[in-house]
């Protein structure tokens, strides 16, 4: 930016900033406010904890509590059973999310295309979809447990059933939004349905499909925590938090929540990045 060059030279005693100074000048508006905001929040939290206004441990407890500090700095240890580092707990949760989410993506995209192409199917099932997608993750847990009688598949089912709806609904919308012109081209050229599918339908609906996938990855991550908290006994970040709560390790809970937030954020950024990579030309 050169807007400030005139006043600086008019004063005559300062040269325009270069290098690091220039970078700081251009970026400080992006850097300073979040630091102030987050710092202020942490300070307020720490103060209310230190003053005893709340039983919740302050952020400094991550370092002051010896057990928590160990968990913070050694995320990879594995003493067998459920006694693992947070990275390993998170990986267990992530592998469940990956399984449930992949199933949801496959079924959701396929069903979304079917519903998007067929008005009758759409009318038949849309009310059901709209209804089911409003059911909260925790409400699915007992149903999943009854259905599968086993924690592992039940947890995966909860992920699946929570993350499928945005994928399905967005894919269907993307298919419905294929411009009539493209369909007409396919009709005149008498394209085979396979060719229409790969050359027209999928590329045309891709942006919508990815919107659904991105919303769903966030939901899937939210759901796994809910599922694991209610279904303890298997390693996972949700179980870790529940276990910490049972033992009144409050600072451990705080650390677990930090991990959850960070992983959720990374997953979302990853999908956003993929979305940009895959659908540029539109």
């Amino acid at each position: 930016m050169t807007t400030s060059s005139a006043p600086t030279t008019s004063r005559g005693d300062r040269t325009p900033p270069t290098g690091l100074a220039l970078w700081w000048k251009n970026n400080r508006k992006l850097i300073v406010p979040p630091i102030l905001g987050i710092g202020g929040f942490l300070l307020f939290w720490q103060l209310s904890a230190s003053l005893g206004l709340t039983k919740l441990a302050g952020p400094l407890s991550l370092f002051t509590e010896e057990r928590t500090r160990e968990l913070l700095f050694y995320p990879f240890f594995d003493r067998g059973g459920l006694d693992k580092g947070l990275f390993l707990h998170s990986m267990s949760s992530l592998s469940r999310v990956a399984l449930g989410y992949t199933l949801a993506a496959i079924v959701g995209i396929a069903a979304g295309i079917a519903v998007g192409l067929n008005k009758g199917l759409d009318r038949a099932f849309d009310p059901l979809f709209q209804f089911l997608r409003m059911v909260a993750p925790l409400a699915w847990v007992p149903i999943a447990l009854v259905l599968f009688q086993n924690n592992q598949p039940a947890a995966i089912f909860v992920i699946f059933i929570i993350s499928i709806w945005p994928i399905l609904i967005n894919t269907a919308e993307g298919v419905r939004q294929i411009p009539q012109d493209y369909r007409n081209v396919a009709l005149v050229l008498q394209m085979s349905s396979g060719r229409f599918f790969t050359k027209v339908l999928i590329p045309s609906a891709l942006l919508y499909i990815f919107t659904g996938l991105r919303i769903s990855i966030g939901l899937a991550w939210l759901a796994i925590i809910a599922a694991e908290i209610v279904m303890p006994g298997t390693p996972g970040i949700g179980f870790f938090i529940w276990d910490a709560y049972q033992n009144s390790y409050v600072s451990d809970i705080v650390l677990g929540v930090v991990w959850i937030g960070a992983i959720g954020l990374i997953l979302d950024r990853l999908m956003a990045w993929l979305q940009q990579r895959i659908s540029p030309g539109q």
């Binding site: 493209y182 007409n184 005149v188």
Partner: peptide
């Protein structure tokens, strides 16, 4: 009876596939 390539259309909005 139905659209076919013996009667090809140049559509008003071009109808090209943008990707």
């Amino acid at each position: 009876e139905k659209p076919g390539p013996d009667r090809m259309v140049v559509f008003q909005g071009y109808a090209l596939l943008p990707w």
